[in-house]
Simulated assay, not measured.
Amino acid sequence: MPAPKIIKIGQNTALILASIVLSLVIAEIALRLTGIGKYSLYDRILFFTKPSLVRTGDKTVRYEPRTKIRSVAIYGDEVDYDIVYGTNNLGFVDDVDYNFDSAPGKKVVFVGDSFTAGDGGNQSWISQLRRRLDRPEISLYNLGITGAGVKQFQQLLTSVKDGAHFDEINIMVIGNDFFRTLWYPLIQDQALWFCQQENTKECVENYPPVMYIANYNDSQEELVDRAKKLYETKGSSEEPKLNFLQQLRLYNLACDVYSLGKNQSSLVHFCPHLKFNQANEYDKNELYKNALASLREIKNSFPNAVVRVVHIPEKGETFSNKYSLEIGSDIKQIGLEYVPLLEICTWNRDMYHKHDAHFNDLGYHNLTECILENLF
């Protein structure tokens, strides 16, 4: 390649990267001035009471069975939510126990991540749906686990497959679920990590905790004070490291901000997630391809069930009314139903917590009504 052309490419690359950085700075200033985003996801300190997440004998991750779990999300010096939810006999968030064999009639399961589990809500949305549906001949199950990805959805369904003959399987997803690898919970020094390998020392040394352990009766003032100390510790770290998912989110955010109103085809070399809408399956990110493979395996494992992918809207997506990761065509190619909740129901920022990405009670109510109207 001629030297002038190489220089030109280098200049263009530097210009794009500089523009991305500038766009991020402008976006950060705007968000903070408007109060929309005073804190980012990485300013959060999340507390869970112990016991909470456990690895079961079948190697799936669930909540501790039959326990009350308190979850507190603190951003800076503000408590964004402080909730308590109960788990049933199988370690899932619900106010009824699950006995698949004895359940009458039609069996409908919802499997997913923290949105499915109901993080941030004061009431179990699956319980609300059960009451609103008011049809005893239909049994509803919530297999949502915080932090889970598509591969873990498959694991959870496989773990109950022998005893559960589901008629409908609703795989509740957000875009990040397609990039989450398998993990297991590790508690050490009053903190909890999501470890992706058996080398716990490497996990603890290289990555920050996902959440911290709190006592059930700790006051909010005590937790805010503790959070401040944890912020100081995080701020004094010489080389804070982000895991792959955090790095991906930050870079994708930069790309999203920079690409607004621009021709995305010219940016795909710098913003891989923008390529998803234009490339065939073989060009896509390996994690994304693995997630699609897991969806195929779910379909094949439950040949007699209706299997659909229900796409939950994230807070940022309600601004543009567009999914940041378009998965519809890939889902349909697998032979699964695709339900884009963002497109078929009304959503707005008031349905999410002030700083946190999860639904508040209004959001979970809207989720309940949206599913009731479109899936039953």
Rank of each mutant, 00 (worst) to 15 (best):
V224S: 00
V224C: 02
D225C: 05
D225G: 04
R226T: 06
R226V: 00
R226K: 12
A227M: 02
A227C: 06
K228Q: 15
K229I: 07
K229C: 12
L230V: 08
L230T: 07
Y231C: 03
Y231L: 06
E232P: 02
T233V: 12
T233H: 15
K234V: 08
K234S: 07
G235M: 15
G235C: 13
G235H: 14
S236R: 14
S236L: 15
S236M: 15
S237Y: 13
S237P: 00
S237G: 09
E238T: 10
E238A: 12
E239V: 13
E239P: 00
E239N: 15
P240W: 14
P240N: 12
P240L: 10
K241V: 10
K241N: 13
K241R: 12
K241P: 01
K241W: 07
L242D: 11
N243G: 07
N243V: 00
N243C: 08
N243W: 04
F244S: 14
F244K: 09
F244G: 08
F244H: 09
L245G: 02
Q246H: 05
L248K: 07
L248F: 09
L248C: 04
R249P: 00
R249W: 10
L250T: 03
L250R: 09
Y251R: 09
Y251I: 07
Y251A: 08
Y251G: 01
N252W: 12
N252Y: 09
N252Q: 13
N252P: 00
L253R: 09
L253I: 01
L253F: 05
A254D: 10
A254R: 01
A254Y: 01
C255Y: 01
C255T: 03
C255L: 03
C255N: 05
D256Q: 14
D256M: 10
V257A: 10
V257Y: 08
Y258G: 02
Y258I: 05
Y258K: 07
S259H: 07
S259K: 07
S259L: 03
L260P: 00
L260H: 07
L260Y: 06
G261I: 04
G261Y: 01
K262I: 02
K262Y: 01
N263C: 07
N263G: 03
N263Y: 11
N263W: 08
N263S: 11
N263L: 13
